[in-house]
Every structure is written in structure tokens, then in C-alpha cells.
Design a protein around this nucleic acid. Sequence first.
DNA 1: CCTACCGATCGGTAGG
DNA 2: CCTACCGATCGGTAGG
Lengths: 208, 208
Amino acid sequence: MARQRQAARRPGPGNGSGPAAEDRRRQILSVATALFREHGYHTTSLDDIANEIGFTKPAIYYYFNGKEDLLYAIVEVVVDEALRRMRAIVVRDQPIVDRLHALLVENTRVVLENLDANTVFYNERGLLSPARERQIRDREREYTQLVRDLYVAGVEKGELLDVDPTVATSTLLGASIWAYRWFTADGPLSSDEVAEQVAELLMAGYRR
Amino acid sequence: MARQRQAARRPGPGNGSGPAAEDRRRQILSVATALFREHGYHTTSLDDIANEIGFTKPAIYYYFNGKEDLLYAIVEVVVDEALRRMRAIVVRDQPIVDRLHALLVENTRVVLENLDANTVFYNERGLLSPARERQIRDREREYTQLVRDLYVAGVEKGELLDVDPTVATSTLLGASIWAYRWFTADGPLSSDEVAEQVAELLMAGYRR
DNA sequence: CCTACCGATCGGTAGG
DNA sequence: CCTACCGATCGGTAGG
């Protein structure tokens, strides 16, 4: 589908940083994200991506330096967005339990609102070069650390269950993130409803 | 390391199904599991696997029909083992809350005890052929269904928190499984300790 | 279980 | 952003 070449304006090096070029970049990333999610990074060729958009492989090199740059760009946005949202919640003037709850709701939301990109993040980011993988890992650690610090403070105040804070943080975030594996937009629950229920379950525990 | 060829007995088609052949199969799978986990399926070549053991690529074709067969064999063991252990717990003569707790402890344990294989399972199983992926997915569904049925029964009896059973099941199992992403054998906690703490947190909730 | 080798795929580049 | 093309990798096979 959409295999016709647009007879539109030649981009040319001139507007390589113009707004039209930004749109093209976004379009390439969007298509790459969907294909990487569906088939995996290595099973998706640059030809696949280019064809899906309606032009040829070398065009991609006009906007990106190589295949790995596509993956990196996708993955980078995911951590940065998660980090940004977590930061905003952690500093709120609320009881720690409430902040942790809000944080888990928000975390599930951000995952489900960007399902393709998040799936690529969790499935393919290990394929990045060691240097880039490290950069991503550092930012992810920062994000985990944010939640861990909150948890430690909550235990000290007697607001949270006293288990190992690393276990608690990883497990709670993991439970939230895991939604990317089973959530379907055509299911009975909206992403917001899922986010709420997940957070509720983790806060209250399953035991009645 | 271990790059010397063993000058041992030629296997030959004769003992292709003998005990020595089974050992070889297991060895190949074990090496493949470690490499697939570390570098990913597509980044690991059959030459890599063969070299690591100390012979050449065609030898692998003496024991397996192709690269994908290696992945399938690894992944199959993982679901089957999980399914087997879950079945044994679900039928116990215990209160549902206790069975759910035991089940989560056991689930985390089985993941952490076979970290390499489970990591491959969750990261690479999407690369199987559609037919094989379906087979794995069916067995995984059976396993999820087991836990879901237990949850539904628990809610009816008033023993469990009344949230959507699919959300509950997926989230609880996900939280447990997620340990494969952050657990390290050289950390302060043993896999058994982690398994207990995860299950405790999920049962009681983080709120004090 | 080895040597030798083929065919296809694919990321990337030249040159415009 | 296109045509044409190269080089390397790699799964798989022949033939022993």
C-alpha cells in the first residue's frame, strides 16, 4: 500500500533542516517504529522502511546516518519522556503513597500511549552499540533511582511496606511496564482504565 | 576459550540418537542460549555457536535442522517447565490466596533459575515462524488461563481484590517475570529471597 | 563432524 | 531523493 512516489518537490540539501525535513524525519521514524515493533530490528530492512513510505533506501541516508540511528532516536525519546513525566510527579507536595500511586498510573499511561515505541524500547534496545546502550541505561537508571529514592523515603516515614527498595521499585515499575505485552486497544478496557487498575492492585495488594 | 577440537570419537550417523548425541544436543543448546541471550538471535551466527564449542558450523546441522530449531527448542522448554510447575500448584488443597502466593513465588523462582533461557524466551520468541510462534503462544495462554481461573474463583469467594481478572493476572505474573530484567546473581539477595519478597509485595500491596 | 562453497540479503556509498 | 552497485555476512548444502 502507498507505493506511489510523490512527484512533490525535490528536498535537496538546501532545506535539510527545514520544517519539511523534520516532518520527513518524523515520518521515517514513525514507520520504522511500527516495523521494528512488528518484525524486530534485524528483520526489518531499510528497504522495507523506504518502500512503506514510498521512496528508496538512499533517501533514508539523507535524513539519518545509518540504521542504528533510527533505533537510537526511537529509544531515546522513550526514556526521555518517561524521565520527564516521573520528575514532575516525584516533586509534588503530596504524601509519598499518593505520589507513588500517581507515578505508577502515569507510567502505565505513557507506555500504553506509545505502545510501538515502548515495545521497541524493551525488545530491541539491547541491539544498540555498547556506547549508546550505556547512554540509554544511564538515563533509565536515573529514572529508576528517582522511584527508588521515593520508596526509601516512604519506608522511613512508615508509609510503605518495608521490603528491599530495589526489589520493590523494580517489581512495581515492571508490573506497570508489562502492560505493553498484553494490552490491546480493542480490548474492553481503555489504557486509562488499565493504568488505574494496575496502580490500585499494586497499592492495595490482591489479598482481600 | 575452549577452542581445541576434541580428538574424541567420531559420532557418525550410527549413534545419532545415542546418549552421547543427547549430550551434544544439550551442549549446543546451552551455548546457543547463552549467546542468544547476550547478543540476540540474529546477531549470533551459527559459526559463533560452533566456534564456542570447538567445532564448525555444519556439525550443528548434524544435530539440528536449522538455526530456528535451536531457538524453538530453547523456548519450548521454558513454557513447558512453567506450565508444569503452575499446574502442580493450582490443584493444591489450599485457600486460593495461598495458592496464588505460592504460584508467584514459584514463577519468579523458575525464571531466575533459568535466567538465560527465560531471557531468550521473552526477548526472541517473536522471531519464530508464525506457526511456531502460535504453538508457543497457545501454551503460554494455557498457563495464563490457569492463573486467571484461579483469580476469578478467588474474587468470587471474596478472597481476592475485585479488579479485572485479566489485568490482575497479567500484572501479577508480569511483576514476577520482570525479575529477569534486573536480577543479578552477584547482588545482595538470592533468587529465593527475591521470589519471596516479590510475592509478599504483590499480596500485601506497598501501602502500609 | 570437516572442507569448500553457493546464493541471498542487506547496510551502506558513489555520483548525480 | 534516485539508479546502480559493492562488500561482507550468513544460513544452508554438497560430498565426504
